[in-house]
Structure formats: structure tokens, C-alpha cells
């Protein structure tokens, strides 16, 4: 298995029999939603689409898998989404085959897609990898594999002696406690790689997510052994070092 990191997405490419590029949580149409909450900015949908297309050119995958939450508004589809999603998918179809694992923001997305472009939301296998958005309990077929998911938008704050030096999206890699999904499962361990969000406006600090987990996967993640990677593949240490409070950072 060969892994390549693409910080411009951010996205990660896994090569087994084929080169598969993974992106998560594009959340097209989010600007329209934000207007409701008092933020009035023009849509950056076009910039996002361009960025994704450039990424495809750079990474040259055989297949693109989008791990859910491609659209944002629930329920329904806003005008902005309607046009932008069409534009996104038509741009993609010109370049590369793709698959979507639907997320909690994706109801209604079937209207924009061909049937073979959608997989089961509880997860499915492709090669040795399990793929799912991450808001549901994983399908039992996925136990024992490495799962790639979105949904958690992980962001990490890198501190130094004086304060927070950098806040960046990140990957969380760890093992799941399979007993939370099945009493009888007895096979090899199940691991997950949480892919950061492609959308510039979303993000949840891992400090909060893993203190108060909000999904089956985050609840079942074994904190002690989980690790953090930056969008360019830099190893950033163990998750526990970012959750530990009242510890002096300095030696």
C-alpha cells in the first residue's frame, strides 16, 4: 500500500491495485446556509471546484472517492447548491470516475448522481479499505479493515511555550473498539483514518471532539493509541498529547 498526501485539498491518495484519491466534507452551498446565521459572504464554490480539479491533475488518481457531505443544506437544496453541485459533478465527470459515500448533509444528492456513483452510507469495501462518511454505525463487513471517513472535520492547535502557534486541519489515525459495534466480533483490529474537511469554513478542534465525541466512530476510537497527521503527512504525535491539560509543555 502506498500513501500520498496532498495538502492543497486536503486529500490523501491510497494506492493498492489502483490509485484512489480521498476527499471529505466539501459542503458546497455552505455560504447560503451561513446567511441564516448572520454571515453574508459570496459563495466560494467555484474556487472549491477549481481546487479539486487542480488536485486531480496533480495527484493523477484512477478513482476519486468523496467521503460524504458534498452538499450542505438539509433538508432541500438551495439555488446555490443546485448550480454548484451540477457544475462540480460535470467538471469531475470530465476528468475521472468518482464514488460518493453519502453523509448526513447529503439527503437529496441522489438527484445529481448516477446510481453507480453512490455507495451505502453505512460503509462499503473497496479493495482492503472501508469507506463511509462516518455519521453512522459502520457496516459489520467493515470490521477488521482500515476505514476512511470524513464527518469529523478534525482541526488541531499546535502550541508552543507561549501560546497557540498554528491551527490546522489534520488526520486522526487510530484503532476502534470493535466491541462497541459487535459483542461477537473476534477478528483483527479495525482502524480508522479520519480525513480532514475540504471546506475552508468548517472544522472541529480535536481537543473538543474527543472529550465529547459526537459520533459512533469518535466514541469508539481508542484514545490512548490514536495519532495525528498534518495535511502534508507530517507526523504530529499522539492524540493524547493534545488532550492533556495542566501539563507544562516545556521540558
Amino acid at each position: 500500500m502506498n500513501i500520498e498526501f496532498y495538502p492543497a485539498g486536503p486529500g490523501v491518495l491510497v494506492e493498492e491495485e489502483q490509485r484512489i484519491l480521498f476527499l471529505a466534507d466539501i459542503h458546497m452551498g455552505i455560504e447560503h446556509e451561513l446567511q441564516k446565521y448572520g454571515f453574508h459572504i459570496r459563495s466560494r464554490g467555484q474556487e472549491r471546484i477549481t481546487r479539486i480539479c487542480d488536485l486531480i491533475t496533480e495527484a493523477s488518481p484512477d478513482l476519486l472517492i468523496m467521503l460524504g457531505d458534498i452538499k450542505h443544506r438539509v433538508p432541500g437544496t438551495s439555488y446555490q447548491e443546485f448550480f454548484e453541485l451540477q457544475h462540480l459533478f460535470s467538471s469531475l465527470r470530465k476528468r475521472i470516475p468518482f464514488i460518493i459515500t453519502p453523509g448526513n448533509h447529503d439527503p437529496g444528492i441522489e438527484e445529481f448522481l448516477k446510481p453507480d456513483e453512490i455507495r451505502k452510507k453505512e460503509g462499503s469495501l473497496i479493495g482492503s479499505l472501508g469507506i463511509l462518511h462516518g455519521h453512522t454505525h459502520p457496516d459489520m463487513d467493515l470490521m477488521g479493515h482500515l476505514l476512511l471517513c470524513g464527518h469529523h472535520h478534525p482541526v488541531v492547535s499546535l502550541p508552543d511555550q507561549v501560546g497557540v502557534a498554528l491551527k490546522t486541519p489534520c488526520y486522526v489515525l487510530g484503532e476502534l473498539d470493535s466491541h462497541m459495534f459487535s459483542d461477537t466480533y473476534d477478528g483483527s483490529s479495525t482502524r480508522v483514518l479520519m480525513v480532514p474537511s475540504c471546506n475552508e469554513l468548517t472544522g472541529y478542534g480535536i481537543e473538543k471532539t474527543f472529550r465529547s465525541p459526537f459520533s459512533p466512530l469518535s466514541r469508539s476510537l481508542i484514545i490512548e493509541t490514536a495519532e495525528i497527521l498534518l495535511p502534508d503527512g507530517t507526523y504530529a504525535g499522539e492524540l493524547t498529547s493534545y488532550l492533556a491539560y495542566d501539563q507544562h509543555i516545556s521540558a
Binding site: E33, L34, Y37, G38, F39, H40, I41, H153, V155, K167, E200, L201, T202, G203, Y204
Partner: peptide, 22 residues
């Protein structure tokens, strides 16, 4: 400039990105 309402809900956004957004 009208980009943010006086009662905007900051919980809906990843705050550290706000500067890039604006």
C-alpha cells in the same frame, strides 16, 4: 460592511477561519 450581522451565530463557523473568510 454588512458581512456579519450583529447577532451572528459564531457557533456555526470554525472561528479560526474567519479571518481568511473576510
Amino acid at each position: 460592511f454588512g458581512a456579519i450581522d450583529p447577532d451572528a451565530d459564531y457557533e456555526r463557523l470554525s472561528m479560526h477561519r474567519l479571518a481568511d473568510l473576510l
